[in-house]
């Protein structure tokens, strides 16, 4: 397409390539949609395609039921579904990943301990530190994926 594409092709480690690896599971990326801007060209994992499918399904239901209220509700649902912050989805994925399993385990254990401990006169404890470790792990893992997904 242009100079940047040649550059991108010459550098397999460039970001445009990294996107493809980490592309969200729900993404159906069509090359026609992608513009001509070499790097940072990424599909949001919550791209329009899955939503469009949902829309179609909902419309079908709507016709059966009829009624404007249903429509409004459907619109609200649409708005909720339309945009999912890729950061959250990636971080959720990362929290479930094997690498973050130990810290997640620690955090959950701490939450259980602290929430279960409210009655006794035990010294005050919080799970902030455990939360930090978990958040750090998840962010570290999600950062490159997120940057590939954002414009």
């Amino acid at each position: 397409m242009g100079f940047f594409d040649i550059v991108a092709a010459a550098m397999p480690w460039s970001e445009s390539e990294a996107e493809a690896v980490s592309g969200g599971s729900s993404t159906v990326s069509t090359p026609a949609n992608s513009g001509g801007k070499g790097e940072g060209e990424a599909k949001d994992p919550s791209g329009p395609t899955p939503d469009d499918k949902d829309e179609g399904g909902d419309e079908g239901e709507e016709k059966e039921d009829g009624g404007e209220k249903e429509e409004e509700e459907e619109e609200e649902e649409e708005e909720e579904e339309e945009l999912v912050d890729p950061k959250e989805t990636f971080e959720e994925e990362c929290k479930e990943s094997k690498a973050c399993a130990p810290v997640k385990h620690h955090f959950e254990e701490c939450v259980e301990r602290v929430t279960g401990n409210t009655d006794s006169k035990a010294p005050h404890e919080d799970c902030v530190e455990e939360f930090f470790h978990l958040a750090h792990c998840a962010n570290q893992c999600a950062a490159p994926k997120l940057w590939a997904a954002l414009k």
Binding site: T115, E125, D126, A135
Partner: peptide, 30 residues
Amino acid sequence: FSLLTGYPEETPAGAVVPEGLNFNPYFPGT
């Protein structure tokens, strides 16, 4: 960037957030 996007949905168990403040892990003191 972390500060703007880092507000967790719920504060971790046991964390004390003073009145009028919000929990953000990236802000010193949270």
